[in-house]
Design a binder for these strands. Structure first.
Lengths: 207, 207
DNA sequence: ACCTGAACACCGTTCAAGT
DNA sequence: ACCTGAACACCGTTCAAGT
């Protein structure tokens, strides 16, 4: 038994800040963002209800830190999901598919990232998430796969909004009552062909 | 002074249920959905904290009633916003524009309508909101303004998601940190030409 | 039938006090 | 420097009791 172990295990906590963030993610997954309680989190981590306030200004600040972690993970997921050997239009589709599947895997995290309460913390990471789309759009425009007379960042913003809208309507059950396929695969299958149909069956050169 | 007036004005309340819903909308606008308190609402309406429970099962049930009212108003707004004398593609654009501007006018209402907690109450109205889009899409497909080999309800769902995504990212400030135009007008101006460009400068017959 | 008054368990947050 | 214990004001909800 190392000398530091006893100290870390009971009484004082070694690294409470990290434990709180990790514990918050678990509790969030269990209870959902609405029933998440800071007191209960403190109880689970084995610390007094006042202890978190040495590390976070408020309950909201703690959730902001969780959201920041979420942005890092979303960014990693998108980098993995968007392959580099394919056409820029295909990359845009992969972006949307990865975006939705990340949210489906971590719905509580995604909800916290985009509930609008942590825009100061989220602004930077959100921009970093969005930036690659502009590149894909410009490459697609250069290759004449997308209309070239529209501003690339407006097109990118529009496509991001589409991915985001499909995602949040899927998460909150918006499609469920409509009797149409609500699986991530179903949502993504032909959906993107509507706007990015140039490489699909509607492609000008596909006939 | 009518005999009923005294009775309605003090002591007991005449129609508490309606007063609660109306008061909830005011309080919601003031405090936002997160800091909305049922106790404070009761206080404002001039009634004990237990009184609302004679009319609503819970705080959530009351907010569900507010959401239902929101759907009615959104539907009216969409019916007014989408003119009938124009092409179906133009109608789809007007749908998106009306959708966003309704949410910009009633952000707290929109948030409650789509937070996923009231899907039982919301399922019907949501379907009624969505249904007209399928008509527009089918008319556009018949007129060869949209690709005809995609299922109309999938295209409509996709366009709804786009309008919804633009709306929620606008509401929660998702575009603010990106240095691009975030006004409802700016979001709508050229945005829809990306997917519905057939009647715009990118239209096949426009050159 | 509709509402009050008082209570219950639970919040988030603060602060003096301990080590 | 980091945490505890106890307190504060405030929730949502329940229930006997009043009219």
């Amino acid at each position: 038994m190392e000398p530091g172990d006893r100290q870390r295990e009971h009484y004082h906590h070694g690294s409470l800040k990290e434990s709180l963030i990790a514990g918050a993610r678990e509790l969030l997954k269990e209870k959902g963002p609405d029933d998440f309680s800071l007191s209960e989190l403190a109880r689970r981590v084995g610390v007094s209800t006042a202890a978190p306030y040495r590390h976070f200004e408020s309950r909201e600040a703690l959730l902001g830190a969780v959201a920041a972690q979420g942005y890092e993970e979303l960014l990693r997921r998108l980098k993995k999901g968007v392959k580099s050997g394919v056409s820029p239009v295909e990359q845009l589709k992969l972006f949307g598919i990865s975006y939705l599947s990340f949210a489906a895997d971590h719905p509580e995290l995604f909800q916290i990232m985009f509930n609008g309460r942590y825009n100061e913390e989220a602004g930077g990471p959100r921009g970093a998430t969005f930036a690659p789309m502009i590149d894909y759009v410009e490459q697609a425009q250069a290759a004449r796969l997308l209309p070239a007379d529209l501003r690339s960042h407006e097109v990118a913003r529009f496509l991001w909004a589409t991915a985001h809208g499909l995602t949040v309507l899927h998460l909150n059950g918006g499609f469920a009552s409509l009797g149409i396929d609500d699986t991530p695969e179903g949502l993504n299958s032909s959906a993107w062909d509507v706007v990015l149909g140039e490489t699909g069956p509607n492609a000008p050169g596909a006939a």
